[in-house]
Design a protein around this nucleic acid. Structure first.
Lengths: 135, 135
DNA sequence: TAATTTCACTTGCATTATGCAAGTAGAATC
DNA sequence: GATTCTACTTGCATAATGCAAGTGAAATTA
């Protein structure tokens, strides 16, 4: 589906976001790209939540069609493809940080280290800059 | 399902959030509660995205089970139920604002008024305070 | 007081999405 | 020439969603 043809249920901003990544997998792929430095198809398959291969292929295609990620050929190995975030994808970082803060607060078994939350509270802007620099 | 019995695919904070409201409808209900002052079952049915009755009933139950909303009887009319956000639900506001800002930036047909984004950029904290005061 | 309306769901059934296991195609390596 | 690696695709079972209609209890109207 071409972007220009995409139809939305509404242009409410919450709905717009949910239509692009409001499923159980898309944001986990974004997470792997931003926070875990993953970039290959095979790497996304190894994440703890165990996405299945057909769903991964489908989501990568949708994320690319919606302009959140790009797919290019790896120079070092013509058989491998590199997935990377576009600026539109990177711009999800502030939202993701708030999501992380919320989950860390309400999930008593959260994986989020306390230092990360502390850093966010102390200076969110520089944390975002650091994370972007790491991409 | 009791909260204590709930099993998560992982305790990654992004995944935790997605398991609680990572579907096409849950956040729209939260939106209606926070931004549109809705509180009755019938009101949620009138939203532009046209949620169906069985899905609405299911999501209200799940959101209540996960501690994001409460369900009480309306004093003025014993036949009506009032749905309201818990503090845990209200705490989603910062994340929702970032989501709104992102969608407003990338959806050229966004419903979000420019003044809202401007207000957010100028003083996010007081915007959040105002919105909470309005609940 | 009997019938109608209001409200909050529930049910049945068709369609769509997801999950799992296995298979494939092309390039690189052995 | 055969095996391996990588990125998928396919088939099929199960689960989630969408749509229309129905239900039951309380309140309102006739």
């Amino acid at each position: 589906m071409k972007r220009s043809e995409r139809k939305y249920r509404s242009h409410c901003p919450i709905n717009f976001a949910q239509e692009l990544f409001g499923d159980k997998w898309s944001l986990l792929i974004i997470r792997d790209l931003i926070f875990k430095g993953k970039k290959y198809y095979g790497e996304f398959l190894t994440s703890g939540e165990k996405i299945s291969t057909n769903i991964l292929a489908d989501r990568l295609e949708k994320l690319e069609a919606d302009g959140l990620i790009t797919k290019t050929i790896d120079n070092k190995n013509n058989v491998k493809k590199i997935y990377a975030l576009t600026p539109k994808g990177v711009d999800l970082l502030p939202m993701l940080l708030e999501m992380i803060a919320w989950s860390a607060k309400y999930d008593d078994k959260t994986d989020t280290p306390a230092e990360f939350i502390q850093k966010m509270e102390e200076d969110k802007a520089s944390l975002i800059r650091e994370l972007i620099a790491g991409l």
